[in-house]
């Protein structure tokens, strides 16, 4: 089984700084995003899922409602698969609330606290769904869980390290639970992009994070390189 943990906006430097032992698996490193003009979430995940740069296609239409067909993604190569709330595929409408709260903050109609509440509510729900599916006893060939909390909270708080550490610890903990439950699975952790501080706020950085629990050093892969690794079950020469 392959388990993919997609952590939006997970920053390589923070993972190291906060000593997130479970996120730092056997091999881990940075992903190369230089093929994209801007690190946009929907574009990056869609490109990850398909192995093709989807930037032009997505920017010609509406960003947040963009949906790939199953046939275009690596899931098409597996019999039993489970995908949770992944941008560009089955990203939930619930996330609109996050963007609304973000706008409200900048328009001085809402606070950071209101915004965080929406993010944590979504996170709780998704976490529950994910573990319910993972522990359901179904024999999946591939599972992909997507957690947006680090990115969402990061936009208004990435500069507050002590706050971000709590969130990174949470993601580290989720990873530990997955690893313990499925010691034989191949676990790939990826982010779409990292983040950088702008005062208390957080901008997207132009690289991402990857981490793998098997003995394959992926070096500095492109977002679109994962597709073929996944469909070949990482059986390529390293």
């Amino acid at each position: 089984m392959i388990i993919i943990l997609g952590f939006d906006g997970l920053e390589y430097e923070y993972v190291k700084k906060f000593g997130c032992r479970n996120l730092m698996q056997k091999h881990f490193g940075k992903t190369d995003l230089s093929q994209f003009s801007e690190p946009r979430t929907i574009v990056l995940w869609s490109s990850f899922l398909t192995g093709k740069n989807q930037e032009k296609r997505i920017l010609s239409g509406d960003l947040w409602t963009f949906k790939l067909k199953k046939e275009e993604t690596f899931f098409n190569h597996f019999k039993n698969f489970y995908v949770l709330d992944t941008p560009g595929y089955n990203y939930s409408e619930d996330h609109k609330k996050e963007r609304d709260a973000l706008r409200a903050f900048f328009e001085k109609k809402g606070t950071v606290e209101n915004y965080d509440e929406v993010a944590f509510e979504n996170h709780k729900k998704i976490k529950e769904q994910f573990f319910n599916a993972l522990n359901s006893g179904t024999n999946f060939d591939i599972v992909m869980g997507y957690f947006g909390v680090a990115d969402v909270v990061g936009h208004l708080s990435f500069g507050l390290e002590e706050k971000m550490k709590i969130i990174y610890n949470e993601l580290d903990e989720i990873t530990r639970k997955v690893q313990e439950k499925h010691p034989d699975a191949t676990i790939l952790i990826v982010s779409d992009h990292g983040m950088k501080k702008i005062g208390r706020f957080g901008d997207h950085s132009n690289y991402a994070f990857w981490s793998l629990n098997i003995d394959k050093n992926l070096g500095n892969p492109k977002t679109t390189d994962f597709y073929s690794m996944i469909i070949n079950n990482f059986k390529m020469s390293s």
């Binding site: 606290e113 965080d116 996170h123 909270v153 507050l160 002590e162 706050k163 550490k165 709590i166 949470e170």
Partner: peptide
């Protein structure tokens, strides 16, 4: 700042790491 951190801990059900 403290409130924000406390709140985050509370919402995620985690302990406040004082030393950190």
């Amino acid at each position: 700042k403290i409130d924000e951190i406390k709140k985050t801990c509370q919402m995620l059900g985690r302990d406040l790491e004082f030393a950190y």
